[in-house]
Simulated scan of single mutants.
Amino acid sequence: MQLFRRFFLFVLLLGSCCVSNAQTDTTAVENPKDSITISEESNLANIVADSLQPKGPKMKRPRDAALRSAILPGWGQVYNKKIWKVPIVYGALGGTGGYFLYNRKWYREYRDAVRIITELTSPNGSKDSTAYLSMNENIRKWYERNQAGGLETLRFYRDDTRKKLDYSFLYFLLAWALNVVDATVDAHLQQFDISPDITFRVQPGYSEMARTSGISLVLHFK
């Protein structure tokens, strides 16, 4: 009987401790100093969302900037008031475009030379020398000095130039795409509010959440 009473008292004591701890935790959560209210969270979300919206007629729309740059390179940069970027855009496009045209020219020269020489050296091919004389002069003279393995070497040059032609076209497309990306990102960055109404500073203070003192990074919206 005495053992039962001791066990009963122990259960009551343990239950009272659990209830006390639960009430303490509930009070701590409901304390406005230790938690962020729903209204504060809503206000903060509205501030962040509002900061991402275009402010005034000077702000640029990323979609419009991207569309302009896709249609005409440099147009999006002009739209963003970054005219100094236009020479860079056309420098990149001009370099890659010039490399593409150079490779296309020499690919056609090697292709025609291989076709003409193959026909001349083939038993059933055409023996007309007019086409041979119309070949690129440098290629013709080189072939006359290296007739032994000249045809196979010309085929190698043709295939290698074809690879360079494909890569140069990809470089040109990449330069065009970077022009669109630059205009889009630049328009996005103009939407961020960097006016004096937003301040960022380091200051000492007391943290209600951590219940300690220290240095805080403060972002203040006015």
Rank of each mutant, 00 (worst) to 15 (best):
220 H>M: 11
87 P>V: 13
66 A>H: 06
81 K>M: 06
173 L>E: 14
156 F>P: 07
218 V>M: 08
101 L>M: 15
78 V>F: 12
144 E>S: 09
196 P>N: 13
145 R>Y: 07
217 L>H: 03
134 S>R: 10
19 V>E: 08
131 A>Q: 05
142 W>L: 03
182 D>A: 02
153 T>L: 09
201 R>W: 06
214 G>A: 11
80 N>R: 04
131 A>T: 04
5 R>P: 03
155 R>D: 05
177 A>C: 01
97 G>S: 05
47 I>R: 12
40 E>H: 02
57 P>Q: 10
182 D>H: 01
1 M>H: 15
178 L>Q: 03
74 G>R: 00
82 K>Q: 15
126 S>C: 00
61 R>D: 12
97 G>L: 10
130 T>K: 05
18 C>N: 10
92 A>Y: 01
16 S>P: 04
172 F>A: 06
46 N>C: 07
87 P>T: 11
132 Y>V: 08
60 K>M: 06
143 Y>F: 15
13 L>C: 10
9 L>W: 07
29 V>Y: 11
216 S>R: 00
212 T>I: 12
192 F>C: 04
82 K>P: 07
200 F>H: 14
120 L>R: 05
25 D>P: 01
1 M>A: 15
102 Y>I: 03
60 K>E: 02
118 T>N: 15
178 L>W: 00
68 R>D: 09
54 P>S: 11
191 Q>K: 05
12 L>N: 06
94 G>A: 09
172 F>N: 05
137 E>H: 12
49 A>M: 03
198 I>D: 02
106 W>H: 14
43 N>L: 15
128 D>L: 02
168 S>W: 00
219 L>R: 06
49 A>G: 12
209 M>D: 07
198 I>W: 02
67 L>M: 14
211 R>I: 13
191 Q>Y: 02
9 L>R: 09
